[in-house]
C-alpha cells in the first residue's frame, strides 16, 4: 500500500427505519475533534426527520414488543458481539470525540460492550423481577406484568459519546420499547458508527433511530409529538428542560429527568428499565 494513499472519508448520515438517509433538509454541520480539527460533516436532522423517525419507531413497536424476550436478549447480545469486533474503530472515534487517550477510550468502549451484555441478560428477567402474582381477597387470579411504554424519545448525553449513549438506549429497547435518539450534538460520530453495528446485529429496522443535529432544534418536536410515549431528558440543554417537560405534559408523556452529570461508568441499576415500563394487571375469576 502506498505511503501516500488518500484515505476514503466516510459520509455520516442519519439512521431511520433501518436505513441511512441524509436529512430531508439536506443540511449538514461540521464535527470537530476536541481540539477543533475537522473530522466530518454530520447530517443536521430536522423536525421532519424526527417525524419520520417517530413513524419508523411506531411501526417497529408491534414486532419488537411482541418478540420473545429470549429473542430480544439474543439481539442485544449480538450487538455486543459485533461491537466487540470493531473495538479499535470505536476507540479511535471516542478518543477523537471526547479528547481522551486511546487507552482511556478503549476502556469506555469495553464498558459500552459490557453494558449491552448486561441489558441483554435483563430482557427475560424483567417480568419475573418486576411482575407479580397478586393475592387478592376474592375468587380471582390476578397477575401484573411489566410492558413496554411504546416509543421513547431519548436525548442522549452530550459528553459521553458512546458509553453514555449505550447506557440510555439499551434499557429502552431491552424491554421492547422502540427509540428515537438525538445523539450528542458535538460528538455524534461514535453514535452513527454504532448505528452501523445496530443495522448488522439483527435488530429490526426502526427499533432504534438515530438523529444527529442540534438538540435544541429537534427536541421540542419530539417532546410535543403525540405519538411519542416517553421522553428521556438526559442530554437536554439546561435552558430547555422545563419547556420540554411542559410540552411532554400535553399528552401525559413519561419523562425521565436524569440529574445532570450521571456517571455512566458506574454500575447501573434497574431505574432506567423501570422508567419505560407500564404495569398491566390482569384479573380472571377462578371457579369450576
Amino acid at each position: 500500500m502506498s505511503e501516500n494513499r488518500i484515505a476514503v472519508a466516510k459520509t455520516y448520515k442519519l439512521y431511520i427505519g433501518g436505513k441511512f438517509p441524509r436529512s430531508e433538509s439536506a443540511r449538514s454541520y461540521p464535527v470537530t475533534d476536541s481540539k477543533g480539527a475537522f473530522l466530518a460533516n454530520a447530517a443536521q436532522g430536522s423536525r421532519k426527520d424526527a417525524r419520520d423517525a417517530v413513524s419508523a419507531a411506531r411501526k417497529a413497536f408491534a414486532g419488537w414488543s411482541g418478540a420473545t424476550a429470549y429473542n430480544r436478549g439474543q439481539v442485544l447480545y449480538r450487538v455486543a458481539e459485533v461491537l466487540e469486533g470493531r473495538r479499535e474503530q470505536f476507540a479511535a472515534e471516542v478518543s477523537a470525540a471526547e479528547g481522551i487517550g486511546v487507552k482511556k477510550a478503549q476502556a469506555l468502549v469495553d464498558a459500552a460492550i459490557d453494558r449491552w451484555v448486561w441489558y441483554a441478560g435483563w430482557t427475560d428477567k424483567i417480568a419475573a423481577v418486576l411482575g407479580s402474582s397478586n393475592p387478592v381477597a376474592g375468587p380471582y387470579f390476578s397477575f401484573s406484568t411489566p410492558e413496554p411504554t411504546g416509543v421513547v424519545a431519548v436525548l442522549a448525553p452530550q459528553r459521553s459519546s458512546l458509553l453514555g449513549l449505550v447506557s440510555v438506549v439499551a434499557p429502552v429497547i431491552a424491554s421492547g420499547n422502540t427509540a428515537v435518539v438525538v445523539t450528542s450534538e458535538d460528538r455524534p460520530l461514535p453514535a452513527i458508527t454504532l448505528s452501523e453495528v445496530l443495522a448488522t446485529s439483527d435488530l429490526p429496522g426502526g427499533v432504534v433511530n438515530l438523529l444527529t443535529g442540534r438538540t435544541a432544534e429537534i427536541a421540542p418536536w419530539l417532546a410535543s409529538h403525540a405519538d411519542v410515549n416517553a421522553l428521556d431528558l438526559t442530554g437536554a440543554p439546561d435552558a430547555l428542560r422545563a419547556d420540554l417537560e411542559r410540552s411532554a405534559a400535553g399528552t401525559v408523556k413519561r419523562v425521565l429527568r436524569t440529574r445532570a452529570g450521571e456517571d455512566f461508568t458506574a454500575e447501573p441499576d434497574t431505574s432506567r428499565l423501570r422508567a419505560y415500563l407500564e404495569t398491566k394487571t390482569v384479573w380472571h375469576p377462578t371457579g369450576v
Binding site: N134, V136, A137, S144, T251, T279
Partner: peptide, 24 residues
C-alpha cells in the same frame, strides 16, 4: 391498558397494582 378484567370487571384490591397507560 393498565388493568384488564377478563370475564369480570371493576375489581379492586390493594395487592393488585392499578393505573394507566398513555393519557390515563
Amino acid at each position: 391498558a393498565g388493568v384488564v378484567w377478563a370475564n369480570t370487571f371493576n375489581r379492586f384490591d390493594p395487592t393488585a397494582p392499578f393505573g394507566g397507560y398513555q393519557e390515563s
